[in-house]
């Protein structure tokens, strides 16, 4: 089994699609890094001045009694103090790039990375069907479950690594901006732990997306069919469920993924779930896809 997995891994990482994807991601992150480098801390004085003017205007309005909403003023309380509370502080504006934002940047990247992982997983098996190499593979390893298991493991492991590597590109690309025009403030041990946890979570979602893509391509024996099914599910089916069957929303894949990544699902039922519960839901879906793909693959003729 190890040899089979190693062979599949070798094939995966020899694929031009994966190499092009990595190259594209590297170029894109460098471009983003350059943009952030030149924008970090730029116009700091202008922004501070603008904020100061806006702050003064808001204070003036407040002092004229335009509170902008209902408010209670205690007897004897000075109006200026009340207005300070209402208007708040406009002064602490920092336009520099803060390297401590990396976990949020990675979370922002994760939907795109998940789509890439889904495409990688689907095309890995889809290409096998399209080129007929599934037949060749089965004449070397006739145990179908074993072969497909090796493919699932390969796409999951590769998508996990691919996600983290692309996030790594982004982290490296942002270093000059933080070092020369920004700050590393707040990048302490706790931040490191948060960063590592984010990498693991986004990597896991990448792996899950790749497995789903691989399973769909196995069922449809086609890459395009797998991508189309995934698109229809996320763009149409989930929207329909949200509109027509709101009670089913806690079981939607994207809401559970959002909760797993950031703990910020808009659905109160999902938001109340613990990480373990969300993981169980996601693993359950993954297992269903794998089981369906394996059952079909085992039974159907290879023609």
């Amino acid at each position: 089994m190890t040899g089979l997995v190693l062979s599949e891994l070798r094939r995966m990482w020899s694929r031009r699609l994966l190499r092009m994807m990595l190259l594209g991601a590297a170029l894109l992150t460098v471009l983003i890094g350059i943009i952030v480098y030149f924008n970090s801390g730029r116009n700091q004085n202008d922004v501070e001045q603008q904020m100061s003017v806006q702050h003064q205007q808001a204070m003036d309005s407040c002092l004229r009694g335009e509170f902008g909403g209902p408010t209670t003023r205690l007897e004897g309380e000075e109006l200026e103090l009340v207005c300070n509370d209402i208007v708040g502080n406009f002064g602490n504006v920092d336009t520099r790039f803060h390297y401590r934002q990396m976990p949020e940047i990675w979370l922002g990247m994760s939907p795109l990375l998940a789509i890439l992982a889904l495409a990688v997983g689907a095309s890995f098996v889809g290409a096998d069907w399209q080129k007929g190499t599934m037949t060749t593979a089965l004449t070397w390893e006739p145990r179908r479950i074993r072969l497909l298991g090796a493919k699932f493991f390969t796409v999951a492991a590769s998508a996990f690594v691919l996600t983290i590597v692309i996030e790594g590109f982004m982290a490296v690309a942002m270093l000059p901006a933080a070092a020369f025009h920004g700050t590393f403030l707040g990048t302490n041990g706790a931040w490191m732990a948060d960063l590592a946890e984010t990498a693991l979570r986004t990597g896991a979602i990448g792996a899950l997306a790749a497995v789903v893509g691989c399973a769909l391509a196995t069922l449809g024996r086609n890459t395009a069919a797998a991508l189309a099914v995934a698109f229809v599910y996320f763009a149409v089916v989930e929207s329909l469920i949200r509109g027509l069957r709101p009670k089913w929303t806690p079981w939607l894949l994207s809401d559970n993924v959002a909760q797993f990544l950031s703990g910020s699902s808009p659905d109160p039922v999902i938001a109340a779930r613990t990480t373990l519960e969300v993981v169980l839901v996601l693993v359950g879906y993954c297992a269903l896809f794998i089981a369906a793909a394996m059952a079909f693959f085992k039974r159907r003729d290879i023609t």
Binding site: R15, K131, G132, T133, M134, T135, T136
Partner: peptide, 11 residues
Amino acid sequence: SIVETPALFPG
């Protein structure tokens, strides 16, 4: 074995 045209990875 070979079944029909040998299926190999063209790239």
